[in-house]
Design a protein around this nucleic acid. Sequence first.
DNA 1: CTATGCTGTTACCTTACGGTTACCTCTGTC
DNA 2: GACAGAGGTAACCGTAAGGTAACAGCATAG
Lengths: 225, 225
Amino acid sequence: MIILLVEDDTLLATHSIDFLAKEGIEVDYASTVRQAKSISAQQQYDAIVLDINLPDGDGLNLAQQWQHTRSEPILFLSARAALDDKLKAFSFGALDYLTKPFALEELAIRIKLLANKNTLKSNKRFALDSLNVDLNAKIITRAQRLIVLSPQQWQLLTLLVEHYPNPVDKATVINTIWPDQDVNNNMYKSLLTRLRSNLSHEHETPLLHTLKKQGIVLKMEKTDE
Amino acid sequence: MIILLVEDDTLLATHSIDFLAKEGIEVDYASTVRQAKSISAQQQYDAIVLDINLPDGDGLNLAQQWQHTRSEPILFLSARAALDDKLKAFSFGALDYLTKPFALEELAIRIKLLANKNTLKSNKRFALDSLNVDLNAKIITRAQRLIVLSPQQWQLLTLLVEHYPNPVDKATVINTIWPDQDVNNNMYKSLLTRLRSNLSHEHETPLLHTLKKQGIVLKMEKTDE
DNA sequence: CTATGCTGTTACCTTACGGTTACCTCTGTC
DNA sequence: GACAGAGGTAACCGTAAGGTAACAGCATAG
């Protein structure tokens, strides 16, 4: 699980990062709005933790901009406990709001709850077209035929299913499948080819599509023109 | 939407019930553990709001009993702000925890968020005229026809949507799409032409308009300058 | 020790993205 | 009326991004 933390108090930030690491939560860190924008462009997160007061702007504005374009759950951190601030935050799409000072344990729990929200809906089964995936039993079939995937391919498929119907961007795939490893583009390309080939045995319609520069996504072919 | 409220402070309870009613939230009310059990037996709720201190028991125990039998999201109310209490609550399956005193507005918002959690996560959408944009799935249609955009065009479209209904000025477009790059006017012009052409396939009304010297904006045809 | 299969690597192919250029219209100004 | 400047369109084309197949190294099983 990886989150984005945007917080200008570096002391608080380092403590948080350390603590969250122990909880198994990886953290990308930005201390300014500017940084946050550039870092977040690279990849998708399981959740975003935003401070309201930032040196070069306002976390609320950032959330407002993101609420129409990004799909991550947002949790606000702020010293401001006033109701107005909270209401504004929620109206900008925040899903949680924690007032400073707070316990790191609580932050960790709330982050985990938010992150689960996205994956919770993917119960145990997933179906698309003639494809059928049992996420618990790790059984995959397409048109009644059993499909066997290598570990990497399985990982990628579950990632895609978790995000369905949204695309998963390349950086996210790479961070998930090859965490802290040297990765080159060919490894990524091979994996895609292999999964694709396994998912569609004969002349079945392709399900795994690439959006140039944006990522990959599971969807049924739209055969209008 | 209907919730169960378990709270022994009758004053707080009546205020809450009144307020939530105005927000369109129906409330079943219990003031004791005993009552809560009997009332809740018949019905499923969108969320459950539990006080911790109850005259004949403890909300935490109730949550613990329910956490494997009931599927409703639980929000705790409590005067106890100690970390231990919160941790215990979360470990019993609570999804949120609000310390008294709190604003009724905040309670209402958090209840709504919890209730939404069970419903499928809906993607962020933008619609204008016959144009329909799913910002998360990155699917665009115009009059039911699927539209495929290049990465640059997609970026521009999201930029326009973020600012809608306000115009976006040229400098902003350029900084967003070509950050720290040499840009000439032709690149900008080409991008506009291409996006325009993709957005209106045949003789559909143009949606992307230029305001001289001000920038570009999405709007339905309306030639007030 | 052989066999099988997973995965990283390489080579080669195809496509369409986007920068470029040329030419057009429109509007306002001197 | 001509010129300038802004904006719009269409076509050209090099190249990077993506796709595939085949091979090689390495593990693991049997």
